[in-house]
Amino acid sequence: MVEHRGLVLHVQAGDNSPYEMFDDAKLKKSSDFWVSKHGAIEQYVETGVDSAWAQHEGNAYYASVETEGYPTEPLTDAQVEGVAKVYAWGRETFGWPLQVVDSTTEKGFTYHGAGGVAWCNHPDCPGALRKAQRPRIIALAGELTGG
């Protein structure tokens, strides 16, 4: 990684762990983390050392978190807590600020679609419902880290 700007929220557009797919280097598909609907967290690369394939040109600057489910579904309460735990860890480890951003250059909690074509052209990732939950995640990450 070139810089530790923060975390990018993604949606899996599917159910169940993507471990098999993310563990196959030939596919060039992975994320730093994945959070299940039940709040289970899986980590696929050594964040800060290795890069995942999640957001192409953004991989050198941001860590990534895939979330189980579909863009038309909000994150479950367990997922909100799981993503907040990931963000809290990043805050303590890399100093990620407790802020929501809609940018590919600012530090904080952004989303995959913000990156446009340079980030694999997924404008609807993670979906409006999940994007709207980022302030709640940041608030909980703040509680977990003492603000």
Rank of each mutant, 00 (worst) to 15 (best):
K28R: 15
H38E: 14
R91K: 14
A88R: 07
K28F: 05
A63H: 07
E81V: 11
E81I: 08
E73G: 07
G90I: 04
T93Y: 12
G48E: 05
Y62T: 08
A60W: 14
R91H: 15
E68C: 02
S51L: 11
P74N: 07
H56L: 08
G69R: 01
A52G: 10
Y70T: 13
T76M: 05
T93D: 02
S64E: 08
E66V: 03
E73M: 13
E46W: 14
L75Q: 06
Y44P: 03
S36Y: 02
A78Y: 06
T47K: 04
K29F: 04
V83C: 09
K37A: 06
H56V: 14
G39H: 02
W89L: 05
L75R: 01
Q79P: 04
V86P: 02
W89N: 04
D50M: 13
V80I: 15
A63L: 13
Y87G: 01
K37N: 07
G82V: 10
G82R: 07
K28C: 10
S51E: 15
P71A: 08
E81M: 09
E57R: 12
Q79W: 03
Y87F: 15
S31L: 05
Q79I: 05
T76C: 10
Q43M: 12
E73V: 06
K29P: 00
T93F: 09
A54I: 02
V45L: 05
E81G: 00
L75F: 13
F33S: 00
T67A: 10
E57L: 12
F33N: 01
D77F: 11
E57V: 13
A52C: 13
E42D: 14
W34S: 00
V80R: 07
K85Y: 01
I41A: 01
